[in-house]
Structures are given as structure tokens and as C-alpha cells.
Simulated assay, not measured.
Amino acid sequence: MGVVTKRSTMTFFSDAASHYSHRVRIVLAEKGVTVDIIDTDPLDLPEEVCELNPYNSLPTLVDRDLALYESKVMMEYLDERFPHPPLLPVYPVARGESRQFIYRIERDWCHLVDAIIDGKDAKAAEKARKDLTDSLLTIAPIFGEKPYFMNEEFTLVDCCLAPILWRLPQLGISLPQTRQSKPLLDYMQRLFERPSFQESLTEQERELRTQAASVA
């Protein structure tokens, strides 16, 4: 086993195209953390990642002697390590609800996003695209109840949703401009205009919207 060089600053090995890496980058930007972000090819991982992460996966966050390799764990770690601004509610019940929302996003939506992006099974990808579109439109009205997802403040739940919603053009999903969808479209605009979100974007991610606009 090789010797891993200890870093003096926090390092984030990020897949520039992955929504799982993107969610962590949003948290880092929201917190204003000084971090060395290294865009990494998931098919050609540096030795350091392989040494620190038993799953040889991205994203991987390194903070001195600590290595984290699960995005939800990273987000909560960063929220506790850098408490301001808080991205989880203070009270236990509300914190539990936020964690449950994140769990549901992963169970209900993330696997659909992954199936569409993977694209190896065209029939499965098309079904996932329809299921994700239908699900988004079904819950669209609840985004009109509060500025952010079920909350007055921006939270980790929004950090998980924003990368998915930003990728809708890449996923082949175009939400209709209807009264039902308007609360969701307004929510998306609020997310995308946040300075932390803009700062979190890689060039690859910016091109997703640029390409969609040029096609339109």
C-alpha cells in the first residue's frame, strides 16, 4: 500500500458531471469553505482516492486525517463542521423530517436520474424519464407553500434537489409552463439564482443549460 500525502487543506475529489458531487459542491459554496476541488475522471481515479476510499468512487472528501465517501455523510459533516449558515433545522423533529425528505429524494428520484443518464437500457431509461416527469408535476404545487422545499430557509434538501432540477434538459425533460408547474418553475429559478449555486457549477454543468438554450 502506497503512502498517502497528508493535505493541509480540505480536498474534494469531484466528478464534474455527477449530481452527487454537485450537491456537495453546493454545500461547500454555501458555507464558503476554503477547499481544493479536484475534478476527477471516475474511470481514472488518482492513487490517493483509491488509497482512502475502499469503494474507489466519487465524490471523496478529505479533511486532514478524515476521508468521507458518501455524499449525504459529507453534507452533514460540513454542516456540523461549519455551522454558519446552518443547512439543517435546529429542532430534532424538523431535522428528522429533512433527513427523511433526502431519503425520499434518493429513493424516488435519484435512481431514475441515474437510469436515464446511464442509458444502456433504452426502454428502462424512457420509463424512468416518464416516471420522473410525472412525479415532479404531481408534487409541483407544494413548492408554492414556502420559498424552499417545505422550509422558509435553504437546507440540505434543496442542495439535493437543485442538481437534479438543473439536469432536466440533459435528462430529456421539459416541464410545461402551466399553472400546476409554475410553483416548481419559480422554485427552480430561486435555486439557480443563489450565488452559492452559481459558484458550485462546473464548466460541464454550465454547458448543460447553454446547450439546451441553443437547441430551444
Score class of each variant (00 low, 15 high):
T5I: 14
K6M: 15
R7I: 02
T11P: 09
T11I: 12
F12V: 05
F13V: 07
S14Q: 11
D15E: 00
D15Y: 06
H19L: 09
Y20H: 13
R23E: 07
L28D: 09
G32N: 10
D36H: 12
T40D: 11
L43T: 12
D44K: 15
D44T: 11
D44H: 11
L45M: 11
P46T: 11
E47W: 00
L52C: 08
P54T: 14
S57Y: 00
L58T: 04
P59I: 08
V62I: 14
L66K: 07
L66F: 04
V73I: 15
P83L: 10
P85N: 06
P86S: 02
A94D: 15
R95C: 02
G96P: 06
E97P: 01
S98D: 13
Q100I: 05
R104A: 13
E106K: 02
D114H: 12
I117Q: 12
I117E: 14
G119S: 08
G119K: 05
A122F: 06
K123R: 15
K123Q: 15
K123W: 00
A124C: 04
K127W: 03
K127R: 15
A128D: 06
A128Y: 05
T133Q: 14
D134E: 14
D134M: 01
P141Q: 00
P141W: 00
I142G: 00
F143Q: 04
F143W: 02
G144C: 03
E145A: 15
Y148R: 01
N151R: 08
E153D: 13
F154L: 12
C160E: 11
C160L: 06
L165D: 04
L168T: 07
L171E: 05
L171Q: 06
L171W: 06
G172T: 03
G172F: 09
I173P: 12
Q177R: 13
Q177L: 10
S181M: 01
K182E: 13
P183R: 09
L185D: 01
E193R: 09
L201A: 07
Q204A: 15
A213Y: 01
V215M: 11
